[in-house]
Design a protein around this nucleic acid. Sequence first.
DNA 1: GAAGTAACCTACTCGTAGTAAGGTAATCGG
DNA 2: CCGATTACCTTACTACGAGTAGGTTACTTC
Lengths: 223, 223
Amino acid sequence: MTTSAPRKKRMPRAEREQQMLTIAEEVFVEQGFVASSMDDIAARVGVSKPMIYEYFGSKEGLLVACIRRAKAELFDCVANAAAGITDPEMALRSGFTAFFRYADEHRLSWQLVLNNEGALAGSAAAEAIEEIRTEQTTLDRALLETFVPHVPGQTLDAIAEIIVGACERLSRWYVRTEGVTAEDAAEYVMRLAWYGLRPLVASSDENVEPVQGSHPAQENNGA
Amino acid sequence: MTTSAPRKKRMPRAEREQQMLTIAEEVFVEQGFVASSMDDIAARVGVSKPMIYEYFGSKEGLLVACIRRAKAELFDCVANAAAGITDPEMALRSGFTAFFRYADEHRLSWQLVLNNEGALAGSAAAEAIEEIRTEQTTLDRALLETFVPHVPGQTLDAIAEIIVGACERLSRWYVRTEGVTAEDAAEYVMRLAWYGLRPLVASSDENVEPVQGSHPAQENNGA
DNA sequence: GAAGTAACCTACTCGTAGTAAGGTAATCGG
DNA sequence: CCGATTACCTTACTACGAGTAGGTTACTTC
């Protein structure tokens, strides 16, 4: 029911490995790493557990292999997109686009990376953490709205998300980097957020073409 | 050796709970959620396992409680910092600063949120995922450098981190939001990155005061 | 100081990661 | 065509950790 046909035939190692990875990816995303059982995965593959251990060493080894495969794919996409473009602006834009396209077209793989970093997908713990971000996003959004009220809701959503992601990641860097104060870090974010936003507020939307041609401020809060 | 004295005395529930949370936080960050054992935590607290289950229900319940406590602290900090400030720019800046200050002053709590979202702290899997970001950061940084060569290395580092964090978070939003194309998402990031960066390149540093008054381009790559 | 309650323990079950040791099918030299 | 080597695959275990049942000890209150 999960895969397709009840493949009971022997299979060369390389092929079996790929099959295992595909199914493991499914299971890990569905149930979360912790809740997934090797017996279950083995059963879905149609093979016995020791085979997986033979090929991947451990449960975590299996996860790592899944991640590595996803990573390789992602880098192919982005590298191809940016390859040969000399203008940095175009290269950046093209790379970003490829990145988001990958996230869209390989949702399972990408969710694996995003969620199973937190091995607790679907769990209360994951929700508790996500809640932190949600609240921060809501707060930022509210602040932004007072500042640039005429901007479409969706744009505000996107910017709020961007700021939260930026803060989170920068906080990691900040903590491990010597000689940077909290004010410095905040200033870095402010620069991008504030100056990056300025075209939106200064010229309404004559200088900066709206991202979405039309889309009249469609709200987007719920999960 | 972990706590302080071999407290063998009885203790009111509220106090014991706080002690448990503090120690659990330590252990979770040290070993990662998956690798941590309830027996170990109980032993360090100087109490038997069923006590923890009595108070927190499950291993994950314990983690959630840790996260909630951290979250409450974080929100206190940020809310206090932004409270009463009417100018949105100052409010944002002050909030950001408080956020980074929290990350710095409560490293353990914050690491819990960052790492144990990925319950695999310290594991090969966590490294594999982090590797993806590192590579992306390196790539972005290289692109930025060709564009704004005169900017201090540390600033480039920070901006690259910001972009990676922004992309990651925005990709989540993007995937769950209807009617947004990869190009749209890329454009959102470009706006912040590009226009946010523009003051740096356009006017060198006459319009925009450098974040670090002096700090002459001190590099910072290693962990 | 008896009764009640809140903190605490010992001693278990059960599920799952990981392993040992052996079976079966393809391939290859003769 | 036939034994032998190799590689895919299995059944049947061990070990360990999450979670629990039920009893014990120390504080509190009248």
